[in-house]
């Protein structure tokens, strides 16, 4: 499902070239969950962005859901992200000009799905996370936990093969964080979704099938 081999990535930071990833190898089978842990600045988000076709590696190969991301054109990668990937970001990243329901529907609208069936699907998801009555609310009218639950619904509305979550509970209190993790786990199991989760919280990592530590640009069992 996810196969990463020999991935390297460096950033130019002024006059200094910072090597963030040094030959990362990673395999996550279908339906499995993997947590990537490590200190801040270790390259966790960079690796997640590469897995999500939002960034390109300097070297190595990345195959996700059968697609070679390093050999695909940007327009094809956009379609792949819409079709096969779901993203949950640390700062929910909901669109403030759209209601909760419209936010959840957004990936489907990008895909050109019919609005009526998409709306029903999005409402069903909101119902599953207990936010059906908040469908018409705008993000600024919602609490942090509610926003993150809506972001999860948005990530799962097109039933992607892979879910990528970057510190999904990093901005929440422990109770809201727990709720979000429960929700992620339940919805993921229901759809047999592969998930890669980036966190620096060991408690969150423990809930995943595999824990991998990224340190010094290399990945090792955590």
């Amino acid at each position: 499902m996810i196969a990463v081999s020999g991935v390297t990535k460096a950033y130019q930071d002024g006059a200094v070239r910072r090597q963030v990833l040094r030959g990362v190898d990673l395999v996550v089978a279908r339906g499995e969950t993997a947590a990537i842990v490590g200190p801040s600045g270790s390259g966790k988000s960079t690796l997640l962005n590469i897995l999500g076709a939002l960034d390109t590696p300097d070297a190595g190969s990345v195959r996700v859901d059968g697609v070679d991301l390093t050999a695909s054109r940007p327009s094809a990668l956009a379609g792949f992200r819409n079709r096969s990937l779901g993203f949950v970001f640390q700062f929910h990243q909901l669109l403030p000009d759209f209601t909760a329901l419209e936010n959840v529907m957004m990936p489907g609208r990008i895909a050109g799905r019919p609005t009526s069936s998409l709306s029903a699907q999005a409402l069903a998801l909101l119902d599953q996370v207990g936010l059906a009555d908040r469908a018409g609310a705008f993000p600024q009218q919602l609490s942090g936990g509610e926003r993150q639950r809506i972001a999860i619904c948005r990530a799962l509305v097109l039933e992607p093969a892979v879910l990528l979550a970057d510190e999904p509970t990093g901005n929440l209190d422990s109770r809201s964080g727990e709720q979000v993790l429960e929700l992620l786990d339940t919805l993921r199991r229901r759809r047999d979704t592969t998930m890669v989760l980036v966190t620096h919280n060991p408690e969150v990592a423990k809930r995943c099938g595999a824990v991998l530590r990224l340190d010094g640009g290399s990945l090792a069992p955590g």
Binding site: S75, A78, N82, R83, L85, F87, Q93, D97, M106, R154
Partner: peptide, 16 residues
Amino acid sequence: RAEVGVLAAMGAPPAR
């Protein structure tokens, strides 16, 4: 800016 980034991350192609 951030919203456009999110739309692109969700698969909205540059042309759209």
